[in-house]
Design a protein around this nucleic acid. Sequence first.
RNA 1: CGGGGCGUAGCGCAGUCUGGUAGCGUAUCGGUUUUGGGAACCGAGGGUCGGAAGUUCGAAUCUUCUCGCCCCGACCA
Length: 482
Amino acid sequence: MGKNNDFVKQITKKSEDFSKWYIDVIKRAKLADYSPMKGMMVIRPYGYEIWELIKENLDRMLKETGHRNAYFPLLIPESFLKKEAEHVKGFAPEVAWVTIGGNEVLEERLAIRPTSEAIICSMYSKWIKSWRDLPLLINQWANIVRWEKVTRPFLRTTEFLWQEGHTVHSSYEEAEEETLKILDIYKTLAEKYLAIPVIPGLKSENEKFAGALRTYCIEALMPDGKALQMGTSHNLAQNFSKAFNIKFENKKQEIEFAWQTSWGVTTRLIGALIMTHGDDSGLILPPEISPFQAVIIPIAKGNYTKSILSEAKKIHNKLKEKGIRSCLDDRDSYTPGWKFSEWELKGVPVRIEIGPKDLEKGQVVLVNRIDRNKIFVKQENLLSTLKELLNEIQIKLFNRAKDFRENNTNNVERFSELKEIIETKKGFIKTGWCGSNKCEKEVKEKTSATIRAIINEKNSNFKKCAICGKKAKHTVLFAKSY
RNA sequence: CGGGGCGUAGCGCAGUCUGGUAGCGUAUCGGUUUUGGGAACCGAGGGUCGGAAGUUCGAAUCUUCUCGCCCCGACCA
């Protein structure tokens, strides 16, 4: 492409100021905008369309595994939230409260849900009586409010959208199996659809969900070397069933507390998407979840205008018929060059150009968003070539992100190495851990890095704990996190 | 919640130190010519300078308070 690839002049360069780039992209690509409410953003149509595609795919996978959607109330009485001690302790600092209804001061204040275990479990205790009622596999798509001190669009907002699954089972083993099954679905969502490689693992006692027995997570590495938690799946064991009195009669005619799980992913995934794939020209969206997979830009010129536009329309309709999300940009008030930059900013994976020269030759030009490579293809081959190209882009984005992660993951034996890496290049640090709270805390205090995931719980391929030097029980991943 | 920075037209900024009736680029609107990498020319509109109070003959500019955003920490999806 020659000397000047610097086509988009309106956003900060990713390499110069990553945080500013991130905000610029969100605003310029019209994914979201700040609202008058502190920490709350408006998700604009283009951003919401990405969410809808994420949602569609995850929803389908959840339904395929027997989950059904339902909806529970936004407000939770304080007494309900207080029933599970760890749970309330964990969430208390970030709950928003409703204290007045109309003109009346409420007798009991109501929490705006920071998560719905409390309200959902209170219903489950009414619905579940017998082993025949199990498993109960319910998911809800909802909004959540957590009064965060520091917010960033998509990554951490006061209000956000998510799905939260809440399931009930007749045994610990079955609950554990469900927890892992969901973790695997999340991994598929991240890797196959968002093209973001993730590492599944277990959270340490310090990092686990308030009220869970075990929290599993998927962790991704962002381009600035910080880790992002992209989803969590909790085995709640009987913690909530005991607090909310969810009991069932098992096949042996014994009354037993039920075994539960909960799990969720949020609009944060969109933040991960932006950071992982974007470049100096803006967003790059993986074809699977891009609102437009291809944008057709007619180069309408002089006498050719009419014939080119009608050809472009034909192509557009053909692609739509074949299930490709196509956009025809036939606005005549913008020049082709302007449109190129605009759609690159918006991250559309493939651009289709058709101009006088192409019309004569019976071809179109396909341009790959990743490297701007051009392919000239005969009209009759368009569909197959486009599909191949979309597939190739999806894979390339994933591989590129994976290479980055591999290149920024370091095996470490000693604390001094760990500290140096965190202070300089960051990234994931794989090391041995003795399992003690003390060592985990020491790392946090001295480096601000935390255990993102325990990736080998049963044993460790590291001999010693990097901090205390005692025998390593687990292999863990340390990183600075969002 | 602690430390730092920034709020002036839709967006990006200058003007603030040294007070004197608000400017540039871009975008927008109308018109003409254009269209293979953010087109050119002509014309037009757009602001209670984040908000409140104070000092002053006079405040974008000085003082105090307040709100919001960004960055770095502590806290969290």
